[in-house]
Every structure is written in structure tokens, then in C-alpha cells.
Amino acid sequence: ATNIVGKVKWYNSTKNFGFIEQDNGGKDVFVHKSAVDAAGLHSLEEGQDVIFDLEEKQGKAYAVNLRIK
């Protein structure tokens, strides 16, 4: 899925991951530091509006192509 809109539920910059809540009511999506770095960001803030693509690997969904809304 592409261009999914959501809000950062939480992001832990020490542990380098967090979760994004989808605006469409879907399951929360894992986001890793690598996606944050690829977006040219240092971190994510709770409540921040983002747009992302959804990829699945080994049955787990995660956010890629992250951008600030």
C-alpha cells in the first residue's frame, strides 16, 4: 500500500523504532530508524502527521518512504 496517512503514536530514538497510527483505522505500523534516516529526519515526534508506504516482510508490516505531511 502507498501514500498512507497517519500520526506518530510514539518513537524511541534510543531504541531506534516506534509506531505510526494509521488514520484509516488499520493496525499500528512499525517504523525503524532506517526509514527515519532515509527521510532525512533525525527523529519523529509523538502526534506528528506523516505519509508512508507499507511493506511486509516475514508477515510483519512496516513503514517505508516516510515523509512529513
Rank of each mutant, 00 (worst) to 15 (best):
I20Q: 00
V50R: 00
L44V: 06
A63V: 07
V36N: 02
E56F: 11
N12D: 13
G25V: 08
N24L: 07
L44R: 01
W10E: 02
G18W: 02
D53H: 04
A39H: 03
E55M: 10
E56K: 12
G47F: 06
E56W: 10
S34I: 09
K15E: 05
D53A: 04
I4L: 10
F17L: 03
K57L: 14
V8W: 03
R67H: 12
F30A: 02
K9V: 05
G47Q: 08
K60M: 13
D49Y: 15
I4T: 06
S34C: 04
G47M: 06
E21C: 05
G18K: 00
D53V: 04
L66Y: 00
L44Q: 01
K69I: 03
F30R: 02
T14H: 13
Y62Q: 11
V29W: 07
L44H: 01
E55L: 14
G6L: 01
R67T: 10
A35Q: 09
Q48F: 07
G40M: 07
K57T: 07
L66D: 00
E45F: 15
G59R: 10
D28T: 05
V50M: 09
A1W: 07
A35K: 06
V8N: 01
D53Y: 03
G47C: 04
N12T: 07
V8C: 04
E55I: 12
D23C: 06
N12Q: 10
A61S: 12
V50D: 00
N16D: 05
D28G: 04
L66W: 00
V50E: 00
I51L: 09
K9E: 01
H42F: 13
V8S: 01
L54N: 06
K57E: 10
A61E: 11
F17W: 08
N12H: 12
V8F: 02
N12V: 08
Q22E: 09
H32Y: 07
L66K: 00
H42D: 08
G47V: 03
V29T: 09
F19D: 00
Q48H: 06
Y11T: 02
R67P: 00
H32R: 03
R67S: 11
I20D: 00
V29K: 02
L66N: 00
E55Q: 09
D28I: 05
K7F: 07
D28E: 08
G18E: 00
E46L: 12
N24C: 05
K9A: 06
